[in-house]
Every structure is written in structure tokens, then in C-alpha cells.
């Protein structure tokens, strides 16, 4: 079996697991996941900001797709869908910031889907700059005009975005980060207590909106991860024996 074939097997298995668990379970809390203090803190501070009439800013990233981290854009959209579902009443104070046109268009679609009537996308969807650096500079400048109560970074970004969270903290807001490139996470590790590292980010939509479908994603990912660990051990053994 070649590595490419192994890749297809993994894809096939993921499809089967996702469909199986999606059809099998209908309850909301059937797969217990570990408590994540960072997410709990984010949820708490976000609610506090919204109740206090302060802005809760949701940053969707500065790219929709990248070769190294292809899924982060779609993941950010999944998170934002969960966030608007979790707080449909926060129409005025929840601000979504995107760094690309595609992200803005998708975010507009998600927002319109939730806030059906009387929703004005101009109110809470902003594009602060159309390239990664311009987005960051624009966002920092906007923060000078409107101090946020909480800022959450989701999607694709680089180490420079550590400045956004540092600025939010300086202004008394809460900061939270999920996703970003690994180098972004290395920079954010220093500046942000509430940070999700690596694959932890994929916990997020399900923690905001405990739909059975998102829990099917959790368990599928957990099973695949264990299988991959087993695969690595077996492949190492076979390579050592000269079979692979």
C-alpha cells in the first residue's frame, strides 16, 4: 500500500465516520469533551461585554485560503455561524471583522441568515484592510476609535496579530485566540492567556453550538487521531523491519 492510497483510505474513513455519527446520534450532549478553560473564559467575557453594551469583536482572519493552513478560513466561518446562533440578540454589539472580500461575503451571508429582518450588514461587518498587513494596521487604528469589550481571533493570521490582542488587553478588553498559523500561535503564546493551540481550535464551533452534527465531527476526529497514532507506530515498525 502506498502513502497516497493511505491518504484516500483516511478520507474515505472520515466520510464514513462523519455520516455514521451524524445519522446515529440526535441528542445535543452525547459526546462529552474535556472542559476548556480558555473557551469558558472567552464565553464569559464575551457575554459580559455584550451585556455591558461594549463591542464583542470577532476577527475572521486575513485570508480565506492558504496553502499551509487551507482550512482556517472555512473554520472561521463555521465558528462565526456558531457565535451568531449562540447570541442572536447581540446584533448591534457583535462586530465581525474580515480581512478579505471572500470572508466578508460569506460572513454577510451568515449574518443575514441569522438576523433575517431589519439587519444592516454595514452595522456589524467591517473590512479594515484588504491585505494581511493592511488588515492588521486598519484594525489597530479602528480599535483606537472604538474600544472593544472582547476580541476573538479566528481563522488565518500571522504573528503580527499578537499586536491586536495586546492592544485589546491594554484597553481593558478580553482577548482570545483560536487558529492562526503556528508561528502566530508562538507569538500569541506570550501575549494571550486564553489561546487554543493547534488542533484544539476545531473544538470551538461545537462548544458554542452543541449540535449533534458538530459533535459527530469531534468523535470522528478523535477516532481518526487514535487510528493515525496506531498507523504511525505500525508504519515505523514495518519500516524498521524493511517491509515498508
Amino acid at each position: 500500500m502506498t502513502w497516497t492510497e493511505i491518504g484516500w483510505v483516511i478520507i474515505g474513513l472520515a466520510v464514513v465516520l462523519l455520516l455514521f455519527f451524524n445519522l446515529l446520534f440526535t441528542r445535543r450532549d452525547w459526546y462529552p469533551v474535556r472542559v476548556n478553560p480558555a473557551v469558558n473564559a472567552f464565553v464569559k467575557q464575551r457575554v459580559r461585554a455584550l451585556e455591558g453594551g461594549k463591542q464583542s469583536q470577532v476577527v475572521l482572519g486575513n485570508r480565506f485560503w492558504s496553502r499551509a493552513y487551507p482550512a482556517l478560513g472555512l473554520h472561521a466561518l463555521s465558528v462565526s455561524a456558531s457565535l451568531v446562533k449562540a447570541d442572536p440578540g447581540a446584533q448591534e454589539t457583535q462586530v465581525f471583522a474580515a480581512g478579505t472580500g471572500e470572508l466578508s461575503l460569506f460572513a454577510r451571508q451568515i449574518l443575514c441568515g441569522t438576523y433575517q429582518d431589519g439587519y444592516s450588514s454595514a452595522l456589524n461587518l467591517i473590512l479594515t484592510g484588504p491585505t494581511p498587513h493592511a488588515f492588521m494596521a486598519g484594525f489597530l487604528a479602528e480599535m483606537g476609535l472604538h474600544s472593544p469589550g472582547s476580541v476573538g481571533l479566528f481563522g488565518h493570521y500571522g504573528p503580527m496579530e499578537a499586536l491586536i490582542l495586546e492592544a485589546a488587553q491594554m484597553k481593558g478588553g478580553h482577548s482570545f485566540a483560536a487558529a492562526g498559523s503556528i508561528s502566530a500561535q508562538a507569538a500569541l503564546f506570550l501575549t494571550t492567556r486564553d489561546l487554543l493551540i493547534g488542533e484544539e481550535i476545531f473544538l470551538l464551533p461545537g462548544l458554542m453550538d452543541r449540535s449533534p452534527s458538530l459533535q459527530a465531527a469531534w468523535i470522528s476526529e478523535d477516532i481518526l487521531r487514535v487510528l493515525m497514532i496506531a498507523l504511525l507506530v505500525i508504519a515505523a515498525g514495518l519500516t524498521l523491519a524493511g517491509v515498508l
Binding site: Y31, V226, I229
Partner: peptide, 11 residues
């Protein structure tokens, strides 16, 4: 393997 195990979601 350790790093992958760290990311296990289930409790």
C-alpha cells in the same frame, strides 16, 4: 504521538 494525544477532545 504525544502531541497528537494532547489534542484529544473527549473526556
Amino acid at each position: 504521538i504525544g502531541t497528537l494525544s494532547y489534542f484529544h477532545f473527549g473526556s
